[in-house]
């Protein structure tokens, strides 16, 4: 009995962190050999029991079942919880007022002279070490890495995050365009 309890403890210790509950409610066991199998978690008293398809079972502590951190939207939203996305929120403007970006949680507006693009936004690419990102505004549709509609702008934060360098504008106008937060 003691041996069984000891074995059960080691099994739980070994596999406890390998249980993941997916967004669809199913729980899987990640095995050491690189494969996985679906398991059923049942309650027995105050204990969680994982029932495996090979007929074996083991007790699992609640803390050993992790929730899956699924990437959203095929990757386009993956940086939206980053500090870069939060730091973008607000209104940014070039000193001459010719270029404007307004970022809110759900919508962004880009203005350059008569050109106005607005709609949902996301960070397509982020290089945290260089503080560079590609911001996608007003996308209409997506097919893999192809983005249709809207505008993609390459922006870079200053080290203290109080200025934005418009790298796309530099490529178009040959000037180092700095944007300042005005709201």
């Amino acid at each position: 009995m003691k041996k069984s309890a000891l074995l059960a403890f080691f099994v739980v210790a070994l596999f406890g962190a390998e249980y993941i509950t997916l967004n669809n409610g199913k729980t899987i066991l990640l095995k050491d050999d690189g494969t996985w199998e679906e398991v059923t978690i049942v309650k027995k008293g105050d204990k969680n029991i994982a029932l495996r398809k090979d007929g074996k079972w083991e007790e699992v502590k609640p803390d050993d079942i992790e929730s899956a951190d699924v990437l959203k939207g095929g990757g386009t939203d993956r940086f939206m919880d980053s500090k870069f996305a939060k730091a973008l929120l607000g209104k940014w403007e070039s000193p001459d007022g010719k270029i404007e970006y307004t970022f809110t949680k759900d919508k962004a507006v880009f203005k350059k002279g008569p050109k106005v693009v607005e709609g949902k936004w996301s960070i397509e690419y982020l290089d945290e070490s260089k503080r560079k990102m590609i911001v996608n505004i007003g996308e209409g549709a997506r097919l893999g890495f192809l983005s249709f509609g809207g505008i993609a702008r390459s922006l870079k934060f200053s080290p203290d995050f109080d200025k934005l360098y418009d790298e796309s504008e530099k490529m178009e106008s040959l000037k180092d365009v700095v944007l300042y937060r005005v709201k």
């Binding site: 050109k115 397509e124 690419y125 590609i134 996608n136 890495f145 192809l146 983005s147 249709f148 509609g149 809207g150 505008i151 993609a152």
Partner: peptide
């Protein structure tokens, strides 16, 4: 090149 694509945008007016 496509293997290293960061963004391809098709747009216009």
């Amino acid at each position: 090149a496509f293997a290293e694509v960061q963004n391809i945008k098709v747009s216009g007016d």
